[in-house]
Every structure is written in structure tokens, then in C-alpha cells.
């Protein structure tokens, strides 16, 4: 009986080692360890006939044999599981360099992007963002900005005239007037939007373009304040320290009026084709709000004053992305627009 047990253990362990699949292993388990009819169970059945001292000794041997077989089964099972997992992992090879299915994000128009940046910047400095109509009346587009009828300054802005006596606003400045009509003082506001000039279109001229008007009305606003705001604005917009200069410029709604130049970002001021070798690039008109404009809006110029500026968003976008044809912006051509996603 002892021999039988030793032989069963030996045979079972070697069968387990030779098994080639989990199913085979299971068959061995049932054959050897099965509670009913398993070889070990059969042997233990015969133990009842033995002498008590033999029974105890043989029982111990039987348990040893069972533990050895179970251990062999367990480790062989683990081997199979590990091999199966390895095989699965290998089978699940995936090419992650493939592009994902589904739709790629679209792009916001570059003008929208730059406008949102500037809006955020000015909101952080306490400026409200206002909207105004694209179709205006003469009063808001001209008269209230100190440009009476027959003023030669009306020539500076070729106007689209509409039926009904309306016109397409030639600048975003009328929103200044509407802002002063609507909001209490002090007032800090910007107004981005679409403006129109009756000009033939070519690579550098458009009849439809985008401006961002800004205005601040408070007590004792100075030219120094204006320079500060413009320098801050342009430093943010171009992500590098901006140097600006003011020089005289005539716009009836400001006095003094300025053209603001920025030190050429391409050559740093040493002179290149972009700045026409002057070291400066003309960027925006600005100035202190003309007292007549304040009076037109029923504001006492002895108590209040302010600055105003008109930033050309179209020009800014063209400078930032080195766009050489203004017409691309309103072409609706996705080969162009998708570059800004």
C-alpha cells in the first residue's frame, strides 16, 4: 500500500508536469484527487482495514502525497495562466500611431481669437465690453464724434451709404457715443466689431475689417495713462515687451490726437522692409477725448476727461501671423482657417 501511494504520487506529479493544457490538468485532478473514485480516495478507502498504528502512519503519508500533488497542480495551473496572459497581451498589440476615429476640433477664426484675448485683458483691467450696431446714423458715426457735415475729415473714411439715410459704420467709435449715452461715469469700455470703408479690395485693402475701440472717462486722465495702457496692451498681445511712441495725428474726436507706433518687432528698430526702414510700425490712432465729444454726450469736460483709441484687429492679426493677403480673412477657405486650430 505504501508502494502504491508512492507510485501514485510519482506518476501524478510526472503526469502533471507533462500536461499540455488546463483541461488535461483538470482531468488529472479528477482522476487522482476526485472525491468519488479518485485514486487517492480509493487508497484512503482501504485504510479502514489497517491496524491503528499503521493507519496513523499511512494517513500521514497519504496527506503528504495529496499535498505534493495539489502543489504540483497549483504551480502547473499558474504556469498555464501566466502563459495565457502573456499570449493575450501579445495578441492585443495595437498601433497607437493610427489617427483616432471621429472628428478633429475645428478652429476659431484668428480674428475671434485675438479679439477674445484683448477682451480678457481689458476686462481684467475693469473695462466693459460693449456692442454697437453695424448700421449707424450720421449722428453717431460722425456728428457726435466732432465730424460735422462737410468736414474734410469725412473724406478720410470712405463711407458706404444706405437707403433710408443709414450708413455702414466706418469705425467702432460710434460705440463710444452709445456707451456714454448708456452708462454712468466713470466709464471704461472697449467695443470690438466689424467696420466698413468703401475701398477697392486688394491684398492689403479691404472694405470690411475689424477694429477694437477703447475709451476711458474719469477724472484727470493723462497722456501718460494712455501710454501706459497701450504699452501694457501691446506687450500682452505680442507676448514680448513693446515699445511705443506717440506722434501727432489728426482725428476730430480726440485732442490732442496721436498716431501710435510700435517699435518694429521684426527688426527690433534697426530698420527692415516691414517697417519701411524707419524702425517703427504705425499701429493705432488714439488721443484724449475731444471736449466737444464729451459735450455732445452731455458730459462736463471741466470735470471729466479721458482717452480713446482704435485698435485695428485685422492689422494685428496680419502682423501676428505674417498674413500677406488681407482677403484670406474673409475668404471662408478652410485651407487657411484650419491652420488656426
Amino acid at each position: 500500500m505504501e508502494e502504491n501511494l508512492a507510485e501514485l504520487e510519482r506518476d501524478s506529479v510526472s503526469a502533471i508536469a507533462a500536461a499540455t493544457s488546463p483541461d488535461e490538468l483538470e482531468a488529472i485532478r479528477v482522476r487522482v484527487l476526485g472525491r468519488k473514485g479518485g485514486a487517492l480516495a480509493e487508497i484512503s478507502k482501504g485504510m479502514g482495514k489497517l491496524a491503528p498504528e499503521d493507519r496513523a502512519r499511512l494517513g500521514k503519508l497519504l496527506n503528504q502525497a495529496k499535498a505534493a500533488i495539489e502543489s504540483a497542480l497549483e504551480s502547473r495551473t499558474a504556469e498555464f495562466e501566466s502563459a495565457a496572459l502573456t499570449a493575450r497581451l501579445d495578441a492585443e498589440w495595437l498601433d497607437l500611431t493610427l489617427p483616432p476615429a471621429g472628428v478633429k476640433p475645428g478652429a476659431l477664426h484668428p480674428l475671434t481669437q485675438i479679439q477674445q484675448e484683448i477682451e480678457d485683458l481689458f476686462r481684467s483691467m475693469g473695462f466693459a465690453v460693449l456692442d454697437g450696431p453695424e448700421v449707424e446714423d450720421e449722428f453717431h458715426n460722425f456728428d457726435a464724434l466732432n465730424i460735422p457735415p462737410d468736414h474734410p475729415a469725412r473724406d478720410m473714411q470712405d463711407t458706404f451709404w444706405l437707403t433710408g439715410g443709414w450708413l455702414l459704420r466706418t469705425h467702432t467709435s460710434p460705440v463710444q457715443v452709445r456707451g456714454m449715452e448708456r452708462y454712468p461715469l466713470p466709464l471704461r469700455m472697449i467695443a470690438p466689431g466689424r467696420v466698413f470703408r468703401n475701398e477697392s479690395v486688394d491684398a492689403s485693402h479691404e472694405h470690411t475689417f475689424y477694429q477694437l475701440e477703447g475709451m476711458m472717462i474719469d477724472r484727470d486722465v493723462s497722456v501718460g495713462n494712455l501710454i501706459y495702457f497701450m504699452q501694457t496692451l501691446l506687450t500682452e498681445v505680442f507676448h514680448q515687451p513693446a515699445t511705443v511712441r506717440l506722434r501727432p495725428g489728426f482725428f476730430p474726436f480726440v485732442e490732442p490726437g496721436f498716431e501710435l507706433d510700435i517699435r518694429c518687432l521684426i527688426c527690433g528698430g534697426s530698420g527692415c522692409a516691414v517697417c519701411k526702414h524707419s524702425g517703427w510700425v504705425e499701429l493705432l490712432p488714439c488721443g484724449l477725448v475731444n471736449p466737444n465729444v464729451l459735450r455732445m454726450s452731455n458730459i462736463d469736460p471741466d470735470k471729466w476727461n479721458g482717452f480713446a483709441f482704435g485698435l485695428g484687429l485685422t492689422r494685428l492679426v496680419m502682423m501676428r501671423y505674417a498674413i500677406n493677403d488681407i482677403r484670406l480673412l474673409q475668404s471662408g477657405d478652410l485651407r487657411f482657417l484650419n491652420q488656426f486650430s
Binding site: V129, Y228, L246, P256
Partner: peptide, 24 residues
């Protein structure tokens, strides 16, 4: 201003009330 040169005017942040602008 133009004859002294605007470049002689130092940039200066304005002193203004700290207000939250109206939202649209």
C-alpha cells in the same frame, strides 16, 4: 505736448476705482 515730445511723458497707470465691469 507735441513740441516737448510725447516721448518725454512717462507711462503711468491711472488711479481708478476698482470696479467689476458690467457683463454682457
Amino acid at each position: 505736448g507735441r513740441m516737448i515730445g510725447y516721448d518725454t511723458i512717462p507711462p503711468e497707470p491711472p488711479r481708478v476705482a476698482c470696479t467689476v465691469p458690467p457683463d454682457d
